[in-house]
Protein backbone atom coordinates (compact mmCIF):
# COMPACT_ATOMS: atom_id res chain seq x y z
CA UNK A 1 0.00 0.00 0.00
CA UNK A 2 2.71 2.43 1.01
CA UNK A 3 4.66 1.83 -2.18
CA UNK A 4 1.64 2.08 -4.39
CA UNK A 5 0.59 5.23 -2.65
CA UNK A 6 3.97 6.84 -3.21
CA UNK A 7 3.92 5.74 -6.82
CA UNK A 8 0.57 7.38 -7.31
CA UNK A 9 1.64 10.55 -5.60
CA UNK A 10 4.68 10.56 -7.87
CA UNK A 11 2.40 10.11 -10.89
CA UNK A 12 0.27 13.06 -9.80
CA UNK A 13 3.34 15.25 -9.38
CA UNK A 14 4.72 14.26 -12.79
CA UNK A 15 1.30 14.83 -14.32
CA UNK A 16 1.04 18.33 -12.86
CA UNK A 17 4.62 19.12 -13.83
CA UNK A 18 4.18 18.01 -17.43
CA UNK A 19 0.78 19.55 -17.94
CA UNK A 20 1.95 23.00 -19.08
CA UNK A 21 4.44 21.39 -21.44
CA UNK A 22 1.80 19.27 -23.16
CA UNK A 23 -1.05 21.74 -22.99
CA UNK A 24 -0.58 24.71 -25.23
CA UNK A 25 -3.82 26.53 -24.61
CA UNK A 26 -3.75 29.21 -21.98
CA UNK A 27 -7.47 28.59 -21.55
CA UNK A 28 -6.84 25.15 -20.04
CA UNK A 29 -3.97 26.54 -18.02
CA UNK A 30 -6.33 29.17 -16.65
CA UNK A 31 -8.85 26.54 -15.66
CA UNK A 32 -6.13 24.76 -13.71
CA UNK A 33 -4.95 28.01 -12.17
CA UNK A 34 -8.45 28.70 -10.90
CA UNK A 35 -8.75 25.11 -9.66
CA UNK A 36 -5.42 25.54 -7.87
CA UNK A 37 -6.44 28.82 -6.25
CA UNK A 38 -9.79 27.47 -5.12
CA UNK A 39 -8.15 24.25 -3.91
CA UNK A 40 -5.87 26.25 -1.61
CA UNK A 41 -8.89 28.00 -0.09
CA UNK A 42 -10.75 24.70 0.10
CA UNK A 43 -7.81 23.04 1.87
CA UNK A 44 -8.01 25.58 4.66
CA UNK A 45 -11.77 25.32 4.83
CA UNK A 46 -11.48 21.54 4.73
CA UNK A 47 -9.29 21.63 7.80
CA UNK A 48 -11.83 23.79 9.56
CA UNK A 49 -14.90 21.83 8.48
CA UNK A 50 -13.65 18.31 8.23
CA UNK A 51 -11.12 18.16 11.03
CA UNK A 52 -12.12 20.82 13.51
CA UNK A 53 -15.82 20.33 12.76
CA UNK A 54 -16.58 24.03 12.28
CA UNK A 55 -18.45 25.44 9.31
CA UNK A 56 -17.66 28.74 7.62
CA UNK A 57 -19.85 30.40 5.04
CA UNK A 58 -17.71 33.50 4.99
CA UNK A 59 -14.48 32.22 3.51
CA UNK A 60 -14.72 34.48 0.46
CA UNK A 61 -14.22 37.40 2.84
CA UNK A 62 -10.73 36.13 3.78
CA UNK A 63 -10.04 35.40 0.10
CA UNK A 64 -11.05 38.98 -0.72
CA UNK A 65 -9.10 40.50 2.17
CA UNK A 66 -5.98 38.72 0.94
CA UNK A 67 -6.54 39.91 -2.62
CA UNK A 68 -7.20 43.50 -1.59
CA UNK A 69 -4.30 43.67 0.85
CA UNK A 70 -1.92 42.44 -1.83
CA UNK A 71 -3.36 44.75 -4.48
CA UNK A 72 -3.36 47.83 -2.26
CA UNK A 73 0.21 47.22 -1.06
CA UNK A 74 1.39 46.69 -4.63
CA UNK A 75 -0.43 49.63 -6.24
CA UNK A 76 -0.68 52.30 -3.55
CA UNK A 77 2.48 51.53 -1.58
CA UNK A 78 4.55 50.21 -4.51
CA UNK A 79 5.72 47.19 -2.55
CA UNK A 80 7.37 44.44 -4.58
CA UNK A 81 4.66 41.94 -5.56
CA UNK A 82 6.40 38.91 -4.06
CA UNK A 83 6.57 40.60 -0.67
CA UNK A 84 2.87 41.43 -0.97
CA UNK A 85 2.03 37.76 -1.50
CA UNK A 86 3.76 36.89 1.75
CA UNK A 87 2.37 39.80 3.75
CA UNK A 88 -1.20 39.78 2.41
CA UNK A 89 -2.38 36.60 4.18
CA UNK A 90 -1.45 38.13 7.53
CA UNK A 91 -4.38 40.55 7.60
CA UNK A 92 -7.05 37.88 7.16
CA UNK A 93 -5.22 35.74 9.73
CA UNK A 94 -5.21 38.52 12.30
CA UNK A 95 -8.88 39.27 11.68
CA UNK A 96 -9.69 35.56 12.00
CA UNK A 97 -7.79 35.51 15.28
CA UNK A 98 -9.77 38.45 16.63
CA UNK A 99 -13.24 37.29 15.62
CA UNK A 100 -12.50 33.58 15.97
CA UNK A 101 -12.82 33.12 19.69
CA UNK A 102 -16.32 34.57 20.10
CA UNK A 103 -17.66 33.25 16.79
CA UNK A 104 -16.39 29.70 17.14
CA UNK A 105 -18.34 29.31 20.37
CA UNK A 106 -21.46 29.15 18.24
CA UNK A 107 -22.89 25.87 17.01
CA UNK A 108 -24.47 24.48 13.85
CA UNK A 109 -26.72 26.94 12.01
CA UNK A 110 -25.70 29.76 14.29
CA UNK A 111 -22.10 29.41 13.19
CA UNK A 112 -23.20 29.22 9.54
CA UNK A 113 -25.10 32.48 9.90
CA UNK A 114 -22.46 34.28 11.93
CA UNK A 115 -19.74 33.51 9.36
CA UNK A 116 -22.14 34.40 6.57
CA UNK A 117 -22.87 37.70 8.28
CA UNK A 118 -19.16 38.37 8.66
CA UNK A 119 -18.69 37.67 4.93
CA UNK A 120 -21.38 40.15 3.97
CA UNK A 121 -19.97 42.73 6.39
CA UNK A 122 -16.53 42.51 4.74
CA UNK A 123 -18.11 42.66 1.29
CA UNK A 124 -19.96 45.87 2.19
CA UNK A 125 -16.76 47.35 3.59
CA UNK A 126 -14.80 46.54 0.42
CA UNK A 127 -17.44 48.48 -1.49
CA UNK A 128 -17.71 51.33 0.96
CA UNK A 129 -14.07 52.12 1.76
CA UNK A 130 -13.68 53.56 -1.72
CA UNK A 131 -10.66 55.71 -0.96
CA UNK A 132 -8.66 52.61 -0.10
CA UNK A 133 -10.25 49.82 -2.14
CA UNK A 134 -11.43 51.71 -5.19
CA UNK A 135 -15.04 51.01 -4.22
CA UNK A 136 -17.39 49.00 -6.42
CA UNK A 137 -15.41 50.07 -9.51
CA UNK A 138 -12.44 48.08 -8.31
CA UNK A 139 -8.67 48.50 -8.44
CA UNK A 140 -6.80 48.57 -11.73
CA UNK A 141 -3.12 48.66 -12.49
CA UNK A 142 -1.97 45.72 -10.36
CA UNK A 143 1.52 44.76 -11.59
CA UNK A 144 2.59 41.26 -12.60
CA UNK A 145 4.23 39.08 -9.99
CA UNK A 146 7.97 38.66 -10.27
CA UNK A 147 10.61 36.62 -8.51
CA UNK A 148 13.88 38.32 -9.25
CA UNK A 149 13.96 38.80 -12.99
CA UNK A 150 11.31 36.17 -13.77
CA UNK A 151 8.02 37.89 -14.46
CA UNK A 152 4.96 35.67 -14.07
CA UNK A 153 3.09 36.95 -17.07
CA UNK A 154 1.90 33.92 -18.95
CA UNK A 155 -0.63 31.44 -17.68
CA UNK A 156 1.88 28.61 -18.07
CA UNK A 157 4.27 30.29 -15.65
CA UNK A 158 1.49 31.17 -13.28
CA UNK A 159 0.27 27.60 -13.28
CA UNK A 160 3.57 26.42 -11.76
CA UNK A 161 3.44 29.14 -9.15
CA UNK A 162 -0.11 28.34 -8.05
CA UNK A 163 0.36 24.58 -8.06
CA UNK A 164 3.61 24.86 -6.15
CA UNK A 165 1.71 26.81 -3.53
CA UNK A 166 -0.99 24.15 -3.57
CA UNK A 167 1.60 21.36 -3.34
CA UNK A 168 3.19 23.04 -0.36
CA UNK A 169 -0.23 23.44 1.26
CA UNK A 170 -1.04 19.77 0.68
CA UNK A 171 2.32 18.70 2.09
CA UNK A 172 1.83 20.74 5.26
CA UNK A 173 -1.74 19.55 5.58
CA UNK A 174 -0.72 15.90 5.20
CA UNK A 175 1.90 16.28 7.90
CA UNK A 176 -0.40 18.23 10.15
CA UNK A 177 -3.18 15.66 10.00
CA UNK A 178 -0.76 12.83 10.72
CA UNK A 179 0.87 14.69 13.61
CA UNK A 180 -0.36 14.58 17.22
CA UNK A 181 -2.30 17.79 16.52
CA UNK A 182 -4.10 16.02 13.71
CA UNK A 183 -5.14 13.30 16.10
CA UNK A 184 -6.39 15.91 18.52
CA UNK A 185 -8.45 17.44 15.73
CA UNK A 186 -9.92 14.04 15.04
CA UNK A 187 -10.81 13.75 18.67
CA UNK A 188 -12.55 17.13 18.65
CA UNK A 189 -14.33 16.10 15.51
CA UNK A 190 -15.78 12.91 16.92
CA UNK A 191 -16.71 14.37 20.26
CA UNK A 192 -15.80 17.79 21.45
CA UNK A 193 -16.95 17.07 25.01
CA UNK A 194 -14.87 13.94 25.29
CA UNK A 195 -11.84 15.84 24.01
CA UNK A 196 -12.38 18.55 26.57
CA UNK A 197 -12.80 15.96 29.29
CA UNK A 198 -9.32 14.60 28.64
CA UNK A 199 -7.87 18.05 28.96
CA UNK A 200 -7.63 19.29 25.37
CA UNK A 201 -8.05 23.02 24.93
CA UNK A 202 -10.54 22.65 22.10
CA UNK A 203 -11.34 26.34 21.81
CA UNK A 204 -7.70 27.19 21.20
CA UNK A 205 -7.30 24.44 18.59
CA UNK A 206 -10.44 25.41 16.73
CA UNK A 207 -9.16 28.97 16.69
CA UNK A 208 -5.85 27.81 15.22
CA UNK A 209 -7.67 25.94 12.47
CA UNK A 210 -9.77 29.03 11.76
CA UNK A 211 -6.70 31.27 11.55
CA UNK A 212 -4.93 28.79 9.28
CA UNK A 213 -7.95 28.62 6.98
CA UNK A 214 -8.02 32.42 6.80
CA UNK A 215 -4.30 32.46 6.03
CA UNK A 216 -4.68 30.03 3.13
CA UNK A 217 -7.70 31.91 1.75
CA UNK A 218 -5.70 35.13 1.95
CA UNK A 219 -2.77 33.53 0.14
CA UNK A 220 -5.02 32.34 -2.68
CA UNK A 221 -6.60 35.78 -2.84
CA UNK A 222 -3.21 37.47 -3.19
CA UNK A 223 -2.25 35.07 -5.98
CA UNK A 224 -5.60 35.77 -7.69
CA UNK A 225 -4.99 39.53 -7.61
CA UNK A 226 -1.63 39.25 -9.37
CA UNK A 227 -3.05 36.85 -11.93
CA UNK A 228 -6.07 38.88 -13.13
CA UNK A 229 -4.34 42.23 -12.33
CA UNK A 230 -7.75 43.78 -11.68
CA UNK A 231 -9.99 43.25 -8.67
CA UNK A 232 -13.42 44.47 -7.66
CA UNK A 233 -15.56 43.34 -4.72
CA UNK A 234 -17.91 41.15 -6.77
CA UNK A 235 -15.87 37.88 -6.82
CA UNK A 236 -15.65 37.96 -3.02
CA UNK A 237 -19.32 37.89 -2.18
CA UNK A 238 -21.68 35.44 -0.57
CA UNK A 239 -21.97 33.22 -3.67
CA UNK A 240 -18.25 32.53 -3.65
CA UNK A 241 -18.36 31.64 0.04
CA UNK A 242 -21.09 29.14 -0.69
CA UNK A 243 -19.06 27.71 -3.57
CA UNK A 244 -16.07 27.17 -1.28
CA UNK A 245 -18.25 25.30 1.20
CA UNK A 246 -19.71 23.28 -1.67
CA UNK A 247 -16.21 22.28 -2.81
CA UNK A 248 -15.30 20.91 0.59
CA UNK A 249 -18.54 19.03 1.11
CA UNK A 250 -18.72 17.62 -2.41
CA UNK A 251 -15.11 16.49 -2.28
CA UNK A 252 -15.52 14.78 1.05
CA UNK A 253 -15.10 16.02 4.61
CA UNK A 254 -12.01 15.03 6.52
CA UNK A 255 -10.01 13.91 3.50
CA UNK A 256 -6.79 15.36 2.18
CA UNK A 257 -7.70 15.22 -1.49
CA UNK A 258 -11.39 16.01 -1.11
CA UNK A 259 -11.03 19.79 -1.32
CA UNK A 260 -8.83 19.52 -4.43
CA UNK A 261 -11.35 17.24 -6.07
CA UNK A 262 -14.19 19.54 -5.00
CA UNK A 263 -12.47 22.58 -6.52
CA UNK A 264 -11.79 20.66 -9.74
CA UNK A 265 -15.42 19.58 -9.94
CA UNK A 266 -16.90 23.02 -9.34
CA UNK A 267 -14.65 24.76 -11.85
CA UNK A 268 -14.61 21.83 -14.29
CA UNK A 269 -18.37 21.43 -14.18
CA UNK A 270 -18.93 25.11 -14.88
CA UNK A 271 -16.60 25.04 -17.87
CA UNK A 272 -17.95 21.69 -19.02
CA UNK A 273 -21.52 22.98 -18.93
CA UNK A 274 -20.46 26.13 -20.77
CA UNK A 275 -19.38 23.85 -23.59
CA UNK A 276 -21.83 20.95 -23.28
CA UNK A 277 -25.12 22.82 -22.98
CA UNK A 278 -24.89 24.60 -26.35
CA UNK A 279 -23.83 21.32 -27.98
CA UNK A 280 -26.66 19.29 -26.44
CA UNK A 281 -29.34 21.98 -26.67
CA UNK A 282 -28.30 24.30 -29.50
CA UNK A 283 -30.81 27.03 -28.73
CA UNK A 284 -30.56 26.96 -24.97
CA UNK A 285 -29.05 29.92 -23.18
CA UNK A 286 -26.90 30.20 -20.09
CA UNK A 287 -30.02 29.55 -18.01
CA UNK A 288 -29.70 25.81 -18.57
CA UNK A 289 -26.12 25.83 -17.31
CA UNK A 290 -27.37 27.19 -13.99
CA UNK A 291 -30.24 24.71 -13.77
CA UNK A 292 -27.97 21.73 -14.49
CA UNK A 293 -25.36 23.00 -12.05
CA UNK A 294 -27.97 23.06 -9.29
CA UNK A 295 -29.42 19.67 -10.18
CA UNK A 296 -26.02 17.96 -10.37
CA UNK A 297 -25.22 19.26 -6.92
CA UNK A 298 -28.40 17.94 -5.44
CA UNK A 299 -27.76 14.57 -7.07
CA UNK A 300 -24.21 14.35 -5.72
CA UNK A 301 -25.42 15.13 -2.24
CA UNK A 302 -28.30 12.66 -2.51
CA UNK A 303 -26.15 9.77 -3.67
CA UNK A 304 -22.95 10.61 -1.82
CA UNK A 305 -24.06 12.62 1.18
CA UNK A 306 -20.58 12.48 2.71
CA UNK A 307 -18.80 13.65 -0.41
CA UNK A 308 -17.30 11.93 -3.41
CA UNK A 309 -14.14 10.73 -1.69
CA UNK A 310 -15.97 8.88 1.05
CA UNK A 311 -15.53 5.53 -0.66
CA UNK A 312 -14.02 3.72 2.26
CA UNK A 313 -15.71 4.36 5.53
CA UNK A 314 -13.08 6.13 7.54
CA UNK A 315 -13.52 6.47 11.27
CA UNK A 316 -14.56 10.00 10.48
CA UNK A 317 -17.46 8.96 8.34
CA UNK A 318 -18.80 6.57 10.95
CA UNK A 319 -18.53 9.02 13.78
CA UNK A 320 -20.47 11.73 12.15
CA UNK A 321 -19.17 15.08 13.41
CA UNK A 322 -20.88 15.94 16.62
CA UNK A 323 -21.34 19.54 15.67
CA UNK A 324 -22.87 18.76 12.33
CA UNK A 325 -25.03 15.82 13.19
CA UNK A 326 -28.66 15.95 12.36
CA UNK A 327 -30.56 15.62 15.59
CA UNK A 328 -33.25 13.50 14.04
CA UNK A 329 -34.93 13.16 10.70
Amino acid sequence: MGFKKNLLLFAVVIFVFCLPIVVESSYYMSIFIVIGLYAIVAQGLGLLMGWAGQVSFGQAAFYGLGAYTAAILATRCQWPPLLCVFVAPLLPSVIAFIIGRPILKLRQHYLVLATLGFGIFVFVMLKDLGALTGGPSGLTGIPYLNIGSIIFMTDHQYFYLVWCALGLTLFCMANLTRSPIGRVFKAIHSSERAAEAVGIDTASLKLQAFVLSAFLAGLAGALYAFWVTFISPSPFGFTTSVEFALMVVVGGLGTLWGPVLGAAIIVGLTEFLRWAVPVALPHAGGEFEIIFFGIIFVLIMLFRPKGLLSIEKSSMAVNNPATLRSTDA
Binding site: F288, I290, I291, G294, I296, V298, M301, P305, S326, A329
Partner: peptide
Protein backbone atom coordinates in the same frame (compact mmCIF):
# COMPACT_ATOMS: atom_id res chain seq x y z
CA UNK B 1 -31.74 12.50 2.22
CA UNK B 2 -33.45 12.67 5.63
CA UNK B 3 -30.74 10.54 7.26
CA UNK B 4 -27.90 12.78 6.07
CA UNK B 5 -26.11 15.36 8.20
CA UNK B 6 -27.42 18.88 8.62
CA UNK B 7 -24.60 20.23 6.50
CA UNK B 8 -25.50 17.91 3.63
CA UNK B 9 -29.11 19.01 3.85
CA UNK B 10 -28.10 22.67 3.81
CA UNK B 11 -26.05 22.05 0.68
CA UNK B 12 -29.00 20.28 -0.89
CA UNK B 13 -31.28 23.25 -0.29
CA UNK B 14 -28.61 25.49 -1.82
CA UNK B 15 -28.53 23.25 -4.89
CA UNK B 16 -32.31 23.40 -5.17
CA UNK B 17 -32.27 27.18 -4.90
CA UNK B 18 -29.65 27.46 -7.66
CA UNK B 19 -31.72 25.21 -9.93
CA UNK B 20 -34.96 27.06 -9.16
CA UNK B 21 -33.31 30.42 -9.80
CA UNK B 22 -32.03 29.13 -13.16
CA UNK B 23 -35.52 27.91 -14.00
CA UNK B 24 -37.00 31.30 -13.10
CA UNK B 25 -34.43 32.99 -15.32
CA UNK B 26 -35.36 30.66 -18.15
Amino acid sequence: ARKASVLTLIIITIGVSIALRGAALL
